[in-house]
Structure formats: structure tokens, C-alpha cells
Design a protein around this nucleic acid. Structure first.
Length: 479
RNA sequence: GCGGCCAUAGUUUAGUGGUAAAACACGGGUUUGUGGUACCUGGGUCUCGGGUUCGAUUCCCGGUGGCCGCCCCA
């Protein structure tokens, strides 16, 4: 739902209303217009709009259980596979992305969230993690670390695109990268973590798509072959693809237009034109995947939108048939990127998962989420003396590991019990004038309604015991 | 970046060229220190700006945002 509200100072609002009333009384149009023209200038004190920037949204407390679950599962798996966390800035010089993701790519061409700073620097919000991580890798001399170097990150990334469901200008990714190993066993392991991550989050039915786009050498040969083929069918391609033919011919294979799909169906496939090395690499990867019992399909059309990939590329799709098809994550090998950025020769492979899409899918399949423990005890206070003492008591119970809720701002016991009921606590502690003076507290069992008065210094141990033994199944007042 | 649909209370929705309604949610209350139900009661000025009009939430134009398709991607 869209929500737009403009906030002005209260006085301004009143001023506007006064103006409006005077308008009503005015009989001559000219007078009205003059009044109106001046009025906005008086009240127009930089109204701000009560809505997030396009394509950005809040992740509210009620959805946090899903996000928390994603954080926990991904973190656990990352540790299990030996990844260390790295956090990098969300902004970099634009050129880092332009040069390394590729000038011809859509991400750079039209989706960069870029601007110029006060210091006249051209910067961009990161559209993905890998470029920044490689920058950091080189800058901090991580090539001397024992290989493989495994790094993972989570955080927001940005694409200046037209938003739709499952597609935001600000979205979050979990990102894994492995440096220093060219053996295809790493490719298999990365695909394994990727699919385990998704499945451990409760999304059981997934499809893994793999392809190999070769190394710069064989890709060059293949590229020529493909261009020749596409040139011969040029008349059957859509406008965009005619353009792509010059800028990024591989992308033609990805086009969803019917006529282009027909052309690319019989186009030469990159996997049949790999050099010896790339061919073996891909074949070995598939063997590892078979060994892992990971079911996959080879999608010769899968090329991905970033220039730095070599050899293996893959994506993970949810298996669901209905609804819009969106990939949950993807990645690939980029053996030449570090070197091309000025680092040492350093093969690498990585992948990213889109958190919003994962959460969306988790909701759809009603996957498990994680909610933090809720308070089981409510502290109600009555009267000034009790109110003063309640703050200390609250902290005292908290220190002893008893999660406690309150609504100190409320005066009446009735309204406080209402809140306690709504929070479904097991016990309510009632601290009134009398109890404050006697150094006691009333402990009320919310399920039975039974109350007992206990002395303040025994309260902690009594509550602890009750929470443990009673193991309360609460029947609260509601129907 | 292109095309289409949409915007009313916290939420989901009615409705009208003469300043708005329901359900649920929320706050307060139905006398003295006790939860539920019931009953009473409060809150929006109709996304923002401009135009047409005696008068616009309603009609027109523009902005902003959402959704859908394309492009592309997570």
C-alpha cells in the first residue's frame, strides 16, 4: 500500500486553514488568487514526505522472525564451511563497479545508484558485493593468507531499477566468496552451501541451474562463432537483441522474446565450444555434483549479467510453478578479476542470495522462523511510591534473567492487567501502596487468577521456581 | 529506461461536485486496587502540488509512491 503524507508545522497548517476560510469569504476571484499565491510561500517550510525512497522499505518487527532465521542459518552455515565475516562500505567509487562489472552490462549501464558527492567524487551505492570485496582483498594483502580464503558478508545492495514485487532498489544479500583455488571442487562446494542455505531455511523444492561460459580464450572463439550465427539470423531478432549483438552478444541467449528464443535454441552453445581446460573443469564439477546427489539442470542459456565471470555460472530457483519466476540467488567463478584489478593471480568463486526473495518464499511455504523469547512476567504498579520502586524491581528481575514486561505509563491496575493479558504472560506482579510499604509483592497467576503475597527479597527465587515448575499452559481471558 | 493500473482512519475496504462510512485494531470510560464479554467514547479532513468550479476527497494536469508487464536481476 502506498502511503504519502506531508508534514508541516502545526502553525502552518492552521495558517492554511485560516487562509482557506478567508477565501470562502472573498468574492472576487482576483483577491482569492492573490491570497492563494502568497499563502503557500508563507507556509511552505520544506515539507517532507512521509514515505521511504522509491524501491526501499522498512523491515518491520513482525517480519523480523524470518530475517532473524535467515541470519542465523546463513551465519551457522558460513562458520561450518570456514567462512570469515567481512564488512565493507556500502559506497565505492563508481569506477570500481563500472570497470569490473562491465560497462556494457545493464547493472552498470542503467541500474547504478550513483551520484556525485560534495567533494565532487563520483560514487555509487554497491550494486553487489564482489567488486568491493575484491578491492578490499587486494588492498589488505589477503593473498598472503592461507588458501582458500573464504569470506562472507550480509547487507544492503542497490540497483536503480523500476521496483516490483521481489525487486527493490535496496535489497539485502548474503554473499560468499572463496579465493585462491581453481579446483572445480570449490565450485561444487559453493553450490552445495548455496543449496543447503536455501533448503535449511525451509525451501525444500529448488532447482539448480549450471552452465559454463568458458575462459577468456575459448570465450573469444565461441563469441565469434555466436556472432556469425546471430548475424545470419539478424532479421529474426528483436530490436534490443540487434543492439546486444554489438554490445554483449552473449546476452541475446537470455532474451525472453519468442523469436529470439527460437533463434538461440539452435545457436551454438558455449559448453560445446569450451577449451580443453574449461571442458574438463565443467565435467569434473558435474561429477562432484552427482556425487553430492545435488540435482541440477544444465542451462546453456544461463550467462548472467556481469562481465567478470569465467567458467562456472549457476543460479538457484525456487521449484514452485505458480507465481512469478525469480531466482533466489546465483553466482559463478571469476578467475581473472583480482588480477585485472591489479592484484596477484587469484582464482575465485562466489555467490549471493537475495534475502527479500528468500523471506518471501519462506512465507509462502510457511517455513520456520525465529522469534526471541517473550516475557512471561508483567510488572504492574499502583501509586506514586510503587511507581518509584518499580523501576528498580524491573531491573532487578531482568538482571536475574527473568524477562519482564511493563506499561509504566498507565495508571490504573485495570488497564495494566489488560496489557498483561494481551501479552499472554504467565504471571503479573502487582506492586501497590500497601505492598511497597510492606516490602512485598502480589504474584498473580494469570491462568488461574490465584494470587499470593510474597516478600520482596524472595521474589526472584520464587518467580524462577514458578516459571520452571509450573510450565504454565495459559488460558487467558479471551473468546 | 518504456507501457498499463492504482492512492480514503493504524489495517482492510465503502462512498460523494457541497469538508466522509464500516469492520478490525488502538486510546479513554462504565465510581473505591484486578484481565474476558457488553455498552459508551476518541481519532481521518480523503498521497502532495496546481487547474476547472460559488464550492473538489470526487473532474483535469503534474509530482511522489505502490502494483503489474517489458528490460534486467537477488
Amino acid at each position: 500500500m502506498s502511503r504519502t503524507k506531508t508534514i508541516r508545522k502545526k502553525t502552518s497548517k492552521t495558517a492554511k486553514m485560516v487562509v482557506k476560510k478567508s477565501i470562502k469569504k472573498a468574492t472576487k476571484k482576483t483577491i482569492r488568487k492573490n491570497t492563494r499565491k502568497k499563502a503557500p510561500q508563507q507556509i511552505k517550510k520544506e515539507p517532507f514526505v512521509l514515505q521511504p525512497l522509491r524501491g526501499m522499505k522498512d523491515i518491520l518487527p513482525q517480519e523480523q522472525p524470518y530475517w532473524e532465521q535467515v541470519r542465523r542459518v546463513t551465519e551457522k552455515l558460513a562458520r561450518e564451511y570456514g567462512f570469515s565475516r567481512i564488512d565493507i562500505p556500502i559506497m565505492e567509487f563508481s569506477n570500481l563497479f563500472v570497470r569490473n562489472i562491465g560497462e556494457g552490462t545493464d547493472i552498470v549501464e542503467k541500474e547504478m545508484y550513483a551520484f556525485t558527492t560534495k567533494g565532487k567524487n563520483k560514487v555509487a551505492l554497491r550494486p553487489e558485493f564482489t567488486a568491493g570485496i575484491c578491492r578490499s582483498f587486494i588492498q589488505n594483502g589477503m593473498h598472503i593468507l592461507a588458501k582458500p580464503v573464504k569470506l562472507f558478508s550480509t547487507g544492503p545492495v542497490y540497483r536503480y531499477d523500476r521496483p516490483q514485487k521481489g525487486r527493490y532498489r535496496e535489497h539485502h544479500q548474503v554473499n560468499y566468496d572463496v579465493f585462491g583455488e581453481q579446483d572445480p571442487i570449490l565450485d561444487a562446494q559453493i553450490i552445495q552451501i548455496a543449496s543447503r542455505t536455501v533448503q535449511d531455511l525451509g525451501i525444500k523444492s529448488i532447482q539448480i541451474q549450471v552452465n559454463s561460459i568458458g575462459c577468456p580464450t575459448c570465450r573469444k572463439d565461441y563469441r565469434e562463432l555466436l556472432i556469425n550465427y546471430l548475424e545470419s539470423k539478424k532479421s529474426k531478432l528483436c530490436q534490443d537483441c540487434k543492439r546486444r549483438l554489438k554490445t554483449n552478444p552473449l546476452r541475446v541467449l537470455d532474451c525472453k522474446e519468442d523469436k529470439c528464443a527460437q533463434v538461440s535454441a539452435s545457436a551454438p552453445q558455449s559448453i560445446s565450444h569450451l577449451c580443453e581446460d574449461c571442458h574438463t573443469h565443467f565435467k569434473t564439477l558435474l561429477e562432484y555434483l552427482d556425487e553430492l546427489d545435488l540435482s541440477y539442470i544444465i542451462n546453456p542459456q544461463l550467462v548472467r549479467g556481469l562481465d567478470y565471470y569465467t567458467k562456472t555460472v549457476f543460479e538457484i530457483w525456487s521449484g514452485s510453478e505458480e507465481g512469478k519466476k525469480l531466482s533466489l540467488g546465483g553466482g559463478g567463478r571469476y578467475d581473472k578479476l583480482i588480477e585485472s584489478m591489479g592484484g596477484h593471480e587469484m582464482p575465485a568463486i562466489g555467490f549471493a542470495i537475495g534475502m527479500e526473495r528468500i523471506v518471501e518464499e519462506m512465507k509462502r511455504v510457511q517455513a520456520k522462523s525465529y522469534s526471541p523469547p517473550r516475557p512471561k512476567v508483567f510488572l504492574a504498579q499502583l501509586g506514586n511510591l510503587a511507581k518509584k520502586k518499580s523501576l528498580k524491581l524491573f531491573a532487578e528481575l531482568g538482571k536475574n534473567g527473568i524477562l519482564i514486561a511493563e506499561s509504566f505509563g498507565r495508571g490504573s491496575l485495570k488497564s495494566q492487567l489488560k496489557v498483561a493479558n494481551k501479552l499472554k504472560v504467565s504471571f503479573t506482579l502487582i506492586l501497590g501502596q500497601k505492598e511497597s510499604l510492606d516490602e512485598t509483592v502480589i504474584v498473580k497467576n494469570m491462568a488461574t487468577g490465584v494470587q499470593e503475597t510474597v516478600s520482596m527479597n524472595k521474589l526472584v527465587s520464587i518467580i524462577k521456581k514458578k516459571l520452571k515448575t509450573d510450565n504454565v499452559v495459559v488460558y487467558h481471558h479471551n473468546k
